[in-house]
């Protein structure tokens, strides 16, 4: 089965017009994420990793270069087509959970299916299954305000997975959690990645979290500074990329 990679970025650039000034947030980024991969995008603030995250999430289009998500050229899609691509190919997990506080866990999780036109009964069934998968089968009717941060993030993960996407994009998923809950969320993400084969892309500045990913993509000044996939094709888990010694990967940098 010659399926297109989950994500394929070739010389992706993104600049913003701020009045007279042009800000180049991404200055030519290329990499590929295959199905079942588990990658962390790391970099200091202002490095362009948020911009990259928005592009990978199909919330934005590149200024130039080619970005294919689920085999589709993001720049060529209309707003409505992008919305559909997000709905079908991508699951989002945000740092601040982004749950609807008025709605129950079940309704929150079912939300992506609403926009896919799935009938109500099936939505509820699938949302319940997704909540059970993150061990929240007993919390279906609870509202986010009645849950701990760890539980809320698990609801968010269930919501990201309910539509069975190819890619799960997690933006600082442990940023608002204590270490115990953070570890639990990471364990669930790893398990899902292993069991369902969904490609997980984490955006984080937490070295510990990044270290648990099998692949690290380090972004700096709008460029990929380091990509362990190229340095380590076997995609073995890398013990600690944050602790220097990986200057050899500088060759991956694209000018």
């Amino acid at each position: 089965m010659s399926r297109a990679p989950a994500i394929e970025a070739v010389d992706v650039r993104r600049s913003y017009d701020l009045g007279a000034e042009q800000v180049h947030a991404l200055r030519g980024v290329s990499f590929t994420v295959s199905d079942g991969e588990y990658a962390a995008i790391i970099g200091p603030s202002g490095s362009g990793k948020s911009t990259l995250m928005h592009l990978l999430g199909c919330l934005d289009r590149p200024t130039s270069g080619t970005l294919r998500v689920d085999g589709r050229d993001v720049a060529a899609l209309s707003d409505a087509e992008l919305a559909r691509l997000r709905n079908e190919a991508i699951g989002f997990v945000f740092q601040a959970f982004q749950l609807l506080s008025r709605s129950s866990a079940l309704d929150n999780v079912a939300l992506p299916l609403l926009y896919r036109g799935v009938p109500r009964a099936e939505r509820r069934e699938r949302a319940e299954a997704a909540l059970r998968a993150v061990n929240l089968g007993h919390r279906l009717g609870h509202r986010p305000t009645q849950m701990s941060g760890g539980e809320q993030q698990r609801v968010a993960i269930a919501r990201a997975l309910v539509g069975e996407p190819r890619i799960l994009l997690a933006d600082e998923p442990t940023g608002n959690l204590d270490s115990r809950n953070g570890a639990e969320v990471m364990r669930i993400l790893e398990e899902l990645n292993a069991v369902s084969g969904v490609a997980v892309v984490l955006v984080t500045h937490d070295a510990e979290v990044a270290a648990r990913a099998r692949r690290q993509v380090r972004v700096r000044d709008g460029l990929v500074e380091l990509d362990t996939a190229a340095a380590n094709p076997a995609q073995e888990p890398v013990p600690d990329p944050a602790r220097g010694g990986r200057v050899a990967a500088a060759g991956e940098e694209r000018a």
């Binding site: 919330l59 707003d79 409505a80 919305a83 709905n87 982004q98 926009y115 539509g163």
Partner: peptide, 16 residues
């Protein structure tokens, strides 16, 4: 605004 952003991220189209 945030809710609208979230709904769009989850696949809501402009017309939804």
């Amino acid at each position: 605004t945030k809710e609208i952003g979230l709904r769009k991220a989850l696949g809501a189209r402009q017309r939804d």
